[in-house]
Design a protein around this nucleic acid. Structure first.
Lengths: 348, 348
DNA sequence: CTCCTGAATGCATTCGTATGCATGCATAAT
DNA sequence: ATTATGCATGCATACGAATGCATTCAGGAG
């Protein structure tokens, strides 16, 4: 393995001159720098990241903390697309990604601490996770830049975060159904996986309120958020939909479960019951009726989070605690019964 | 940040004694070791990975190379589950994962080289990718342990690999249909994304041959492998299925596309046409008819690949170039018309 | 009592890069 | 010619842990 010392020998200069040349230090003459870059190129020189990290305490590495609850298909889809988006943003700036989870499932070790103290990552992106108070304290005390992605709860009010305005999302979904004349709208939600669903439900409530419609708590259903659970829930208790003319399912995958269950019961969508989903997953455009849904600008949000993080890394003086909240958009297709629109999905 | 030198001062010993204690060197007395471990614990000591890596050239980091062609939903699902499986295996042994792609999309840099030379990863898992010859040469010359996962082509004959026997998979899928009396079986495949599909097609051919049925090349269809492409292909050229009584789709997602297209054409599955898919994705058990499919033991394969890699890392003397080829299994559900089986999916 | 042995610990150096400070050298100002 | 100026480079050290070799010390053998 070739080192800066080797290059120095070859160029007949000192190791420090080589180092400065490779790092574009201004105090090196154009001529020397070029000669050294030339030799480095020829020799296929690459920095030793460990030595560099030891010396500078920077590693050009970003830690990505993924959520633990890898439960169903839609999470996997979400995370995989997200990972790809992260790559797009970070690779562009020549950062590497080290992926982890808040905790080691076996040793119980705190991976966030480990990434910071041991690995010396330059920053962290924490995806859709709530952290325990101890980790939170540590994180803030460490001074390391971090951004919460796709997550918000009041406890992170003072921290950097980029996420979707789910209250608004829930509202536009419900409003759309209301505007189509529906009055008894079932809302299917899920819990225990995070809090965005509470906001979506709040949006649902607000929309009804805006239209002067009282909230019937019996119209708010809950399950574990999977296709199967939703499907079964509807088949097992068909009287849930008595009098209901529209349904707002807070995840597309749940909406599909509902539609499939309704199909078994010979209830047609949107003719008999209108449906709106949430997430805009590709799957929503596979089967008829194509799903009307709320589009999460996943790609945009991820890009913004990376940009923000890199900004924080670039300068210690940037004020921390910025909130970036993005409004989702309603995508009208077939399942709501408004009209039929075959325009191709935007970004999934 | 607390260092071994700090611990040494606190314990009244030398830094080397601390280092040896923390690394369980046999030459340290039980008493000293325990005292030092105690102090390290109290102080919340953590190794500096950079210093350690610089000194030992080991980093407890595995590089994961993902395939570039993140095209459709089924790839995302596949990779996300895979990532989770990798975590399971590597976290258990306290390795970190640094995820990458063979090439930097922007700078064009060779990430594999970078991971090895700069990051000094201890090993590489190369997921479902063919590497260019130059990288291949470099990889072999580097001496670093690596394992190809979910991939095989004859050029890696001398290298470690863990993958599914897709020829066998294609064969059992086809044989199953043959055993149900079908003679004219359409085979839908895809290309340009890797070579496993060629093996699946070979399996199809072999099965027909075994049953003494001539191969009609017109019965082998090809598209880009997505739901939509398959769906459209069938709607646009309905005479493709003239005389066909069964279809073997080489990806579940394609099978679902076929079924949806057939539904549009009022052709029932399995009554009019029997279907077998491949992959055993969760989605195949969402909609009726539940999909008969070939189960890829993804989890098992991933585990074996990790174990193999760690074995190579643990000892330089282990002979390289082992092949681990796992046979997939047929999961019979509804779409093939054999019988109805509601047993829950095994692992997805 | 002396010498030897071996276990336990310390010393000094190494890994590869970055960087503060000293130095050298050419040019310009006097 | 002499001195000040500033650019370009080298020297020396630090970063934190690992490790070969030297040293110390206790206990046993002679």
């Amino acid at each position: 393995m070739i080192t800066t010392k080797d290059l120095a020998r070859l160029a007949g200069v000192s190791q420090s001159t080589v180092s400065r040349s490779l790092n574009n230090s201004p105090s090196i003459s154009e001529k020397t720098r070029n000669r050294i870059l030339q030799i480095a190129q020829e020799q296929g020189f690459e920095f030793n990241a460990n030595a560099r990290g030891l010396s500078t305490n920077r590693t050009d590495t970003i830690g990505i903390i993924y959520p633990e609850d890898f439960t169903d298909l839609s999470y996997h889809l979400f995370l995989s697309f997200l990972h790809n988006d992260l790559r797009e943003s970070l690779e562009r700036k020549n950062f590497d990604m080290i992926t982890s989870f808040a905790q080691n499932r076996f040793s119980g070790a705190n991976n966030i601490k480990k990434l910071i103290i041991q690995r010396k990552v330059d920053g962290l992106i924490i995806v859709r996770s709530r952290l325990d108070p101890e980790t939170m304290t540590f994180l803030q005390g460490s001074g390391i830049p971090f951004v919460f992605l796709h997550y918000y709860d009041p406890s992170i009010e003072q921290m950097d975060r980029v996420y979707t305005d789910h209250l608004h999302g829930g509202m536009i979904a419900t409003e759309h159904l209301l505007s189509l004349g529906h009055k008894r709208i079932l809302c299917i939600t899920t819990a225990g996986e995070g809090t965005e669903y509470e906001y979506r439900t709040d949006g649902y409530r607000l929309a009804l309120q805006k239209y002067g419609i009282g909230i019937d708590e019996k119209l708010i259903l809950q399950n574990n958020g999977s296709f199967k659970a939703t499907y079964n829930q509807f088949l097992e208790e068909p009287d849930r939909i008595k009098g209901v003319t529209a349904i707002f399912a807070q995840k597309d995958i749940m909406a599909l479960g509902v539609i499939e269950a309704l199909a078994q019961m010979n209830i047609r969508v949107p003719k008999d019951i209108a449906m709106v989903g949430y997430d805009n997953i590709e799957l929503g455009t596979y089967f008829r009726p194509y799903l009307t849904t709320v589009h999460q600008p996943r790609e945009q949000i991820t890009r913004l989070a990376c940009e923000r993080l890199l900004e924080l890394i670039a300068s210690k003086r940037v004020k921390r605690g910025k909130e970036i909240k993005i409004r989702p958009k309603l995508i009208i297709r077939e399942s709501c019964g408004a009209f039929r629109d075959d325009t191709p999905m935007e970004q999934q």
